[in-house]
């Protein structure tokens, strides 16, 4: 198995100020294809701000984010024009929100939700769109008889799984996840994590996942960045950071959890 030597995404000196208030500051890292990076920290640590900047939802105050496009060229994502950026976001990228309502069209059927990206990139065959949608519903373990039901009739766990299917249908190479298991019951969380772990491995996805839950980071990620007050204070291999935390704050985080 070979690992590409060029990063998929590269962040250099990312800062985001909200007036005088620091969102995040001086964050640099490389993410490679197939790599899962967990960004952990408490609320207010800047991890969600960082995710918004990386995914171009927020313009940084300073720094640069570049991405290796499908044609192999590294592009500054903030220098892409609006059409290129939006195409990137709905083909080669995915974004899984904590609140599925932000990532789904609640009044549109499950099949329509999954099919939207396909139609957006030009699929014009109803039968094919529908069978692809059904295939994805199966992969995220949603009962196929619910294909024509709108997500407003779904449970929280189902909505989250539908959101994942909707994102993965165009076979993106990079998926951003913002607390994807937040607000779910523990048993529902476990099932979702298990599903995500399998999909990430099968599809070779690169993932940047923001979570405050170290167990989620342990299960899904290869690498961890610990953030506090807008800065990355510790970074490394996931099991290394969790089993041998170096920074006082990381030790506090790790010791605050029962068992991870």
């Amino acid at each position: 198995m070979t690992i590409d030597d060029q990063p998929l995404l590269s962040a250099r000196g990312i800062s985001k100020m909200y007036g005088q208030h620091v969102g995040c500051t001086d964050v640099s890292f490389d993410l490679f294809a197939g790599e899962v990076l967990a960004v952990v920290g408490e609320s207010g640590s800047g991890k969600s701000t960082l995710l918004s900047v990386l995914s171009t939802r927020l313009e940084p105050t300073g720094g640069a984010v570049s991405y290796r496009m499908r044609d192999g060229t590294m592009r500054d994502v903030f220098a892409l024009n609006e059409a290129e950026r939006r195409l990137l976001m709905r083909t080669d990228w995915g974004f899984v929100h904590q609140d599925a309502r932000e990532g789904l069209r609640m009044g549109i059927s499950a099949g329509g939700n999954v099919g939207e990206r396909l139609m957006a990139v030009g699929s014009r065959h109803y039968g094919e769109i529908r069978s692809t949608a059904l295939d994805w519903l199966g992969r995220v373990e949603i009962d196929l008889t619910r294909v024509d039901d709108a997500p407003k009739t779904f449970s929280g766990g189902m909505r989250q799984r539908l959101q994942i299917a909707r994102n993965l249908v165009t076979q993106p190479r990079l998926v951003f996840m913002d607390e994807p298991t937040g607000g779910l019951d523990v048993s529902v969380q476990a099932r979702l994590l298990d599903l995500l772990r399998g999909l990430v491995a099968d599809l070779g996805l690169a993932v940047i996942i923001v979570t405050h839950d170290l167990a989620v980071a342990r299960l899904l990620s290869h690498r961890i960045m610990v953030m506090r007050a807008g800065r990355v204070i510790e970074t490394g291999l996931t099991d290394q950071v969790l089993d041998d935390p170096r920074e006082p704050y990381t030790q506090l985080l790790v010791s605050s959890v029962l068992q991870v």
């Binding site: 099949g111 329509g112 099919g115 939207e116 957006a120 014009r124 109803y126 769109i129 294909v147």
Partner: peptide
């Protein structure tokens, strides 16, 4: 694409 989603919904329903 969104307009086609609407048409998709029609056929599905």
């Amino acid at each position: 694409g969104l307009m086609h989603v609407k048409l998709y919904e029609d056929i599905a329903k």
